[in-house]
Design a protein around this nucleic acid. Structure first.
Lengths: 209, 209
DNA sequence: CTCGAATTTCTAGCACTGCTAGAATCGCGC
DNA sequence: GCGCGATTCTAGCAGTGCTAGAAATTCGAG
């Protein structure tokens, strides 16, 4: 918008472009290093000082890119949502049978969380400044949720689709978080997912309260 | 144990008893205040300084009772396991029908977590120094798990009972944590629980991978 | 090529955290 | 009343997230 007409046009503009490019590079560097550090030593080890040291800048530089530490976690989380969506979509496309697709997606979900525990933690456990309302949630998050809907939708039968997705998601999320906290033996996760998928595929009898 | 025979028996002994009683009182005071503070302002607000201020002692006193801050969280969590077990048992005894019992216990579980989010957090989300192996876990924790088994066992049919309990537990836990983080609309939790219970009651068809 | 201005970056510091060593205080038994 | 042992506190350390203001760097104009 207000590029001053007085300044000599080209060189000033290209200089600014280079600066913005360098800034963007440094920003993604911060996110990448934060993620690596979290995955290697846990999020507690991701302090502003250590992060600054690794990117070879001083701490205040971080704050010229992000509002605070949690904003960095949020940036990592957003990457995670995009990657999760891609993983789930890939799993879904490996088959045409609806039941097999559900099984594949469920396993992909758990595998994703197991492969990158810190990433999953940033997405779903840690405090981030992401809104989560059905409308206000950012696109990558809605896309991940929609991917679950793609595979649960054809199986919903008479059930409320949104609720059906939510309990499927919750069950997977519960398996992931309990296993990560050492509450469940990780070696049997695959069997649990199979059992869960079987229950989700079953036609429900109406529960009595 | 070894009360020295040289000291004048009664008074010395009763003094020591009083001291131990006062110590025990103070210890439970610490746990109570920590829990109240966490429930009122979140666990982040439970700092050793604020805790010490509220119990009207200095910080080092806390460390004469607990090894560290996490040990205090652990103490709160243990209280929670006992209370959760009681709640689930009460819900189970409200009916004799197995299906209705499952529904009652599931709702009781979610209600427990909703009523005391900080307590639930201490039990299942925060870092505590509780062991979680099937053998090493403390009794109150095993009791809570067993309570889920009491209601899911009669419905397990051909399924592996332990795995069946675990996926039921995980699903409830997922609903709770996602709702607490704002990922799920809390107003529909009851409907989700009903839907989930319906799925757990259904006889599964074997999933294909 | 040099200089002044603008932007970027860093140093130093604040208020807070969990935790602890050593000093001060207290209460008990004689 | 007095001395000793247990209890409690003061003061401090190293770490945290974050920021104001100084220093350094870069850039464009003359």
């Amino acid at each position: 918008m207000p590029t001053k007409p007085t300044q000599s046009a080209q060189s000033a503009q290209s200089t600014q472009q280079r600066r913005e490019r360098e800034r963007a590079d440094r920003e993604s560097l911060i996110v990448r290093v934060a993620r690596e550090l979290a995955e290697a030593e846990g999020w507690d080890a991701v302090t502003t000082r250590r992060l600054a040291e690794r990117i070879e800048y001083s701490q205040p530089v971080l704050y010229s890119h992000f509002a605070g530490r949690t904003a960095i976690v949020t940036a990592v989380a957003l990457e995670g949502f995009a990657e999760l969506t891609a993983e789930l979509a890939a799993a879904r496309h490996r088959t045409t049978d609806p039941a097999a697709a559900l099984a594949a997606v469920a396993h992909a979900y758990v595998d994703f969380a197991t492969a990158g525990p810190a990433l999953y933690e940033a997405m779903f456990t840690l405090a981030t400044d992401l809104p989560f309302g059905p409308d206000s949630a950012p696109a990558p998050l809605q896309a991940a949720f929609a991917e679950l809907g793609n595979v649960l939708g054809p199986l919903a039968a008479g059930r409320d689709l949104v609720l059906f997705i939510e309990i499927g998601w919750a069950a997977l999320h519960g398996l992931v978080t309990l296993a990560r906290g050492g509450r469940l033996d990780p070696d049997q996760q695959s069997e649990r997912v199979d059992l869960l998928v079987g229950q989700l595929l079953a036609l429900p009898s109406l529960p009595r309260r």
